[in-house]
Design a protein around this nucleic acid. Structure first.
Lengths: 345, 345
DNA sequence: TTGAAAGCGCTAACAA
DNA sequence: TTGTTAGCGCTTTCAA
């Protein structure tokens, strides 16, 4: 009893000797069906291996049970961890996912994307691509034109939009304050690309921590990388040339932190004795660097879960026509994982 | 002219003073519309910001333009690189993607998943989760029951199923042969979990390379890890205890390779002078390990692209009712990236 | 507890 | 070149 023709509700109804509506009631677990009728129908459905068409249901109910997800840079660890959290939570809550990956981080032509989602009747959109440069400029237009609930992961707080972000500023402070506690007095920062909001936040955290501790924050203490190990090394070499007395480095991510470890080693100096290093992201491998790298841990999974929950809440209310949903900004706190690279021996 | 009520083809037709059919023709770029009629309609569509409902189109055409994607372990690098390739290529070819992530690698209850995809009328399925243990046991049942075209990424060759895989066996050989060339005579292997097909393949490549070179392949030369740096270190320590004369290690991935570097260092020995190391995966960071790690590079992007192309081909033919599509197994060749960890100084 | 009729938004087949 | 008629597979009234 397989394939050939697609089984429809009509086939089931006919075989069970009832009307399509009654079958529909069974599908939707309505109470108003005689129990023997129900059983009969269920049996036929099983026998035919019947699957109601989600498409027909969506059309009829005007409800798709689908969320749209926008990601970018899936070959990076952060975005895919976030996506993983989204898939798990969405599954748990019974939502399907339509996935789009931006071709580039700075893609600004988001119109087609929204139209596509709209035409597929998604009930909400999870925007899980990082905020870079002015790649949120379309937001104001969007808010007027678009009536699909949307939630952003990782972006600057805005009053009229819901978002869930890791507190990168806090992370920057945690890292820097720790280095200060460990006795560092000249703490450099290798930032991510400053078009990234996250990179700017981390840098600001570094800056404020230094200022509060009464330490100097001159420009030649911060160099910009592009997240890659290669760029981190280059930035570090420039930095150490400008100021050979640097005794602490806060790297914008672990990859750049890794290359600092390498560069220090090649200079014939020692981490942590001569220079202490802290990274960001807490890669699984960081524990195995030489020496193991202290790092700021951000729980992207947690952020993703919060985002899905909030979106479900919003879209549910939206569906019921309650328009008065106040946008909400959720911040997730990072934590510092301390390892040898930053500790006095 | 935004939102409020959803604009349908009917609204457009009325406003343009034509029938819905004619509008439909314009939507689908049919030639048989007078050019002034077409312009008029297009203008109305623009004015109303009209978007045809993909759901209604799917139902009517019996064609969704959607592929289903199954992934697992998105927080690992491999699966997300693969997924990234899939999204890019699918986008390029005009397919949307419905995404599901398996809760665990060894999930065997795939029935609901298939039913869900089926109910959404996906035109094909990309199975991008690794083959582990007997998590392909459902294949035989599936092939009978399921009529959706499906293509697997990374699995053992099977006559009746299409798949695209990296040639892991070849990768294992490349790594090992390279170590032999560099003069190693006692080459150990730290494998991934042997329930993984990929891990078994890499190991077999190692074994065969040794055998062909006339080197011994005793059991205490291979230990099993679980891909993590931690497990790699443990495996290496066991190995070196059993046979202190080991002068080369082929690690099943770069993470485990990394911890071998660490462990050797802690023993007071040197890589590559005392022990040479090769990894697998060629992580971006591997270039910055101490010393930089030689590694087998697998182009998952390429595999993903091939898979999408093949699936599109199959599903297209399938849609036309041509049932005679011979399953195809595509193998992608890995390459060896040579760095200091394996070179004579 | 069940069924008939209408409709979700669109397209295919046929006529005009 | 355009319109009419019938669906696609299901759900939602409303009536029986």
């Amino acid at each position: 009893m397989t394939l050939n023709k697609k089984i429809t509700i009509y086939d089931v109804a006919k075989a069970a000797g009832v009307s399509r509506q009654t079958v529909s009631r069974v599908i939707n677990n309505r109470p108003d069906v005689a129990s023997d009728t129900r059983e009969k129908i269920q049996q036929v459905m099983k026998e035919f291996n019947y699957q109601p068409s989600a498409i027909a249901q969506s059309l009829s109910r005007q409800k798709s049970n689908l969320f749209g997800v926008v990601t970018a840079g899936l070959d990076y660890l952060g975005p895919s961890k976030t996506l993983s959290g989204i898939t798990q939570k969405a599954e748990e809550m019974g939502y399907g996912l339509l996935l789009k990956e931006l071709a580039s981080f700075t893609n600004k032509d988001v119109q087609p994307l929204f139209q596509w989602f709209q035409s597929h009747q998604v009930e909400g959109i999870l925007w899980a691509a990082p905020e870079i440069e002015d790649n949120r400029n379309w937001l104001k237009d969007l808010l007027e034109e678009n009536d699909i609930p949307i939630i952003f992961l990782t972006m600057e707080k805005r009053e009229n939009v819901s978002s869930v972000s890791i507190d990168n500023y806090k992370g920057g402070r945690l890292a820097t304050e720790h280095l200060i506690e460990q006795g560092c007095r000249k703490i450099g920062h290798i930032s991510g690309p400053l078009e990234w909001w996250e990179a700017r936040q981390r840098k600001q955290g570094w800056k404020d921590a230094l200022t509060e501790a009464g330490l100097s924050v001159s420009d030649h203490l911060c160099f910009e990388g592009n997240w890659s190990s290669k760029s981190g090394k280059k930035a570090f070499l420039q930095m150490i040339k400008q100021d050979p007395e640097i005794d602490g480095v806060f790297a914008g991510n672990d990859q750049m932190g890794l290359s600092v470890l390498q560069a220090v080693n090649e200079m014939g100096k020692k981490v942590p004795d001569d220079i202490k290093v802290v990274g960001f992201d807490n890669l699984p491998e960081s524990e195995y660097f030489l020496p193991p790298l202290t790092s700021v841990h951000q729980d992207q999974q947690k952020a993703a879960i919060a985002a899905v929950e909030e979106l479900a809440r919003i879209s549910e209310l939206d569906f019921q026509g309650l328009e008065t949903i106040a946008p909400k900004t959720i911040l997730i706190e990072p934590t510092l994982i301390i390892r040898r690279s930053s500790l006095n021996s």
